[in-house]
Amino acid sequence: MPTSTITDTPRQPGGPLSHGPQVDDPMWGLLLATWDLSLESAGRAANTRRIYLHAGRLFVAWLLALPDEPGSDTVDAHGRPVLPRPAGPEDITRQHVEGFLVAFRTTPTPRCPNGPGQAYVNQIYRALQQWMGHLLDEEDIDRSPMERIKAPKIDQTIKPELTDDHVKALLATCKAIKTGHAKLDKRARYVAARDQALIRVFLDLGARRAEVAGMTLPDVDLHLRTIKVTGKGGRDRLPGIGQTTALALAKYQRLRAEKQAAASAAYWLDENGRKPLTHSGLGQLIERRGQLIGRPGTHWHEFRRKLADDWLDNGGDRGALMVHAGWTSHEMVERYGAAGKRRRARNAHARLGLADRF
């Protein structure tokens, strides 16, 4: 078996997982690269490929940290016997996958001190399921080690709501503070305009991060007040935006035109205007604005839930909401409108006062 290393912090077998490791092992690296090529040829979105490959790298890193021949008394961080390192994909067992999922679920991170959330663990599981299916199609394995492993559950929890007051506070942070230094003031004005436009786009579209990050200049029509976005499965849609959002985008575009990367097709540029804003940079931007209003952990996904809640609270049509948000099933409307659904039920109960007549 070829020697292998992971360009990340070493760890004990069965211990905490590293995040986003690069696989230097030639065999495993080639297997992952082949999978990525297959995903690309199938037209899978770049963000989907990124999620899948990230899960694959985490799994391989965990496998390569296992000993070749563990002793009979060798146990992992959870007191279970340590499994031997598989020589190739055909040696991956159900126990390997389950051991990895347990390790992943219980690994603390700076953002998640109690380990990743259930939805993230479920996402990793489904990504690995796709990889095992690919290995099966390529005849690298005879049987998927995951065929009898149940998907990690996702409890229906009540998530904190992004309120109107929160949104107003976030927008209020997007104001440039004059310092008297011309260069710094110009940069601050650009950043404030960009962030305000970005927050308003999330608020108006309720779009996915990848959809907003993938916007290009030709996608935005300020005259018709529409933005072309490409959703999951490469499906394009043309949701409308409000007048206030259109004005915010117009201001951002005026200031963007003065930047070094103005000729870039990417719509959103970094704080210096020298290169496109990345997916992660976009998420970090929203989180930083949340910290400024004393609400750490503010996430772009909350705008998607807020759109669904506000739409339904104001009597909007569910079918139209599905088209606007890029959903293909009514289940998604129910899921994203869950918080507002409870509130609407309480309001309806109070209005009807059924028990008050006795």
Rank of each mutant, 00 (worst) to 15 (best):
residue 12 Q to L: 12
residue 15 G to E: 12
residue 21 P to M: 09
residue 24 D to H: 12
residue 31 L to G: 07
residue 49 R to K: 14
residue 52 Y to T: 10
residue 52 Y to R: 12
residue 77 A to Y: 03
residue 78 H to P: 00
residue 85 R to P: 07
residue 90 E to R: 06
residue 93 T to P: 01
residue 96 H to Q: 12
residue 97 V to M: 03
residue 114 N to F: 07
residue 114 N to D: 14
residue 117 G to S: 02
residue 142 D to Y: 07
residue 143 R to K: 14
residue 143 R to T: 15
residue 144 S to K: 10
residue 150 K to M: 14
residue 157 T to K: 15
residue 161 E to T: 07
residue 167 V to Y: 05
residue 175 K to A: 14
residue 175 K to Y: 10
residue 186 K to L: 08
residue 187 R to M: 06
residue 192 A to M: 07
residue 194 R to M: 06
residue 199 I to E: 01
residue 199 I to L: 04
residue 200 R to M: 13
residue 205 L to E: 02
residue 207 A to G: 11
residue 209 R to L: 11
residue 217 L to P: 00
residue 218 P to Q: 09
residue 220 V to A: 03
residue 225 R to F: 01
residue 230 T to L: 15
residue 243 Q to P: 04
residue 246 A to F: 07
residue 250 A to F: 09
residue 254 R to E: 09
residue 258 E to I: 01
residue 260 Q to I: 08
residue 271 E to G: 05
residue 278 T to E: 09
residue 279 H to C: 01
residue 280 S to T: 06
residue 282 L to D: 01
residue 283 G to L: 10
residue 284 Q to E: 07
residue 289 R to T: 04
residue 290 G to E: 00
residue 292 L to W: 03
residue 297 G to S: 08
residue 304 R to Y: 00
residue 330 H to F: 13
residue 333 V to E: 13
residue 342 R to Y: 13
residue 343 R to H: 12
residue 355 A to M: 12
residue 358 F to T: 13
